[in-house]
Nucleic acid binder design. Structure first.
Ligand code: NAD
Ligand code: NAD
Lengths: 205, 205
DNA sequence: AATAAAATGTGAAAACTGTAACAATAAAAT
DNA sequence: ATTTTATTGTTACAGTTTTCACATTTTATT
């Protein structure tokens, strides 16, 4: 229905709308959203139009209605269970993150090969990878956060996919090889920093 | 010289090339890179061509030469100092991250309003924000990682910019308003997860 | 030496994405 | 009631990005 670039913009609009709502606003205009998101007003209207979202001429868009439609599009209506693999520095921050609920996601379990990590100090139970299939089946998990060291990321992702995972949010700085039906989103801090530096022109050739 | 979409692809190529190099390879072909990065072979050749990188017809590209050119483009040649603001869950993971050196970046200091964080338990000194200007000037810092709570992110970013920061890697789930000369890259875990779910079609409307 | 094969490099075409112009409509002002 | 104003929604256009087709070069084979 909507493609990747549109999806990204819709998510931006959603963030802006949530902010407007928090400020007590009831309606908004393509302009206001444009200022907030740096997307042109026309394009915003086009995106909404294409998603079947209608505003009122001269009256703007109803914020609750917009958020409702976006909720439908992004499927926040059904709760989605997720898991995390690797409870090191970054993994243990992510397992404690509290915003999952806001998007109707539910962190149900964590996995680590290190038995020392399998304690009750975390907000979810921590298992050995042997229990992966069981957890995935029990909680109908499709998406996993991967936060294991670089050298084991490929192997671990293979194992995740083998056991039914179809979406991976990968924090390891490697391009994972996965089958076609699996989607990987990479979060790569170094790459973001490098691009930042490149574009602010810190670089004097 | 290269635009945003190209920059992203060049970074992908670089990751693949580093991997090839680690595997002991000396040269590579647009095909091989294509398989590794999921970018079409023609586009890869075009990108290289546009960056003035030449291969040998039938002989492919020299990996070291490619990496050298990319290094020039991304300016890994000059060391860049960076700082981090906010040492909570995610901030303290990031301050311990060890890959900065690999891209010739140097984490020189951390900042937190909580005095309890200002201990020697971290790999860099932790200061109050009062010391920001001093650190920025001393170490010629242009880029900061922002890992403070959502509600203080906008205000903190304003303060960073006021003191000379021109690039922000923002982990808070807000669209920061910054002057034109400042660039923000957002890392938003929830948004990545949502898009993952949307695209794997977990969502049954 | 001649031919075949495997790669790069590139101009033209196609596909995709965003912008501009403006008609349609609703609200506000007169 | 009429006119003005502000805003959406859409069609045509412009710009950007990617792919296609194929010429060119180098290496390998016969
Ligand atoms: N620390 C950061 O700020 C940061 C930032 C961005 C990306 N990353 C990346 O995230 C990954 C993890 O980084 P980290 O700093 O948390 O590392 P870490 O070494 O602190 O943690 C890795 C964890 O994964 C576990 N583990 C190792 N192999 C495993 C396996 N096969 N299955 C399950 N668990 C396994 C280890 O026991 C450990 O708990 C790395 O790839 C790193 O490059 C880290
Ligand atoms: N925890 C995660 O895994 C995670 C993941 C993605 C994004 N985030 C985002 O990162 C940010 C930090 O998350 P967290 O979980 O680390 O929160 P946290 O509450 O654990 O840490 C926030 C830290 O910032 C400090 N701080 C607060 N205001 C400050 C200010 N004005 N200047 C300097 N320091 C200040 C606090 O003292 C604290 O140490 C949040 O915006 C969160 O949404 C967190």
């Amino acid at each position: 229905m909507v493609n990747l670039v549109q999806t990204k913009r819709l998510q931006k609009y959603r963030m802006a709308l949530l902010r407007f709502k928090k400020m007590g606003l009831k309606k908004t205009f393509s302009h206001s959203l444009s200022e907030e998101t740096s997307v042109s007003a026309v394009l915003i209207r086009k995106d909404f139009s294409q998603c079947g979202i209608r505003g009122k001429r001269r009256g703007g868009y109803d914020i609750d209605l917009l958020l409702g439609e976006l909720k439908k599009i992004f499927g926040h209506e059904k709760e989605q269970n997720i898991i995390i693999v690797g409870l090191g520095n970054i993994g243990s921050a992510l397992v404690k993150y509290e915003d999952y609920r806001q998007s109707n996601m539910n962190m149900v379990a964590a996995f680590d090969i290190d038995p020392a990590k399998r304690t009750r100090r975390y907000p979810v139970p921590v298992y050995s990878l042997e229990n992966l299939r069981e957890v995935i089946d029990t909680f109908d998990v499709s998406v996993a956060i991967l936060a294991v060291p670089e050298f084991s990321a490929q192997e671990t992702s293979r194992y995740l996919v083998e056991n039914g995972i179809r979406g991976i949010l990968n924090f390891a700085p490697v391009l994972l090889k996965v089958p076609d039906h699996v989607l990987v989103n990479n979060v790569n801090v170094m790459i973001e920093l490098e691009r930042l530096m490149y574009h602010i022109g810190v670089i004097q050739d």
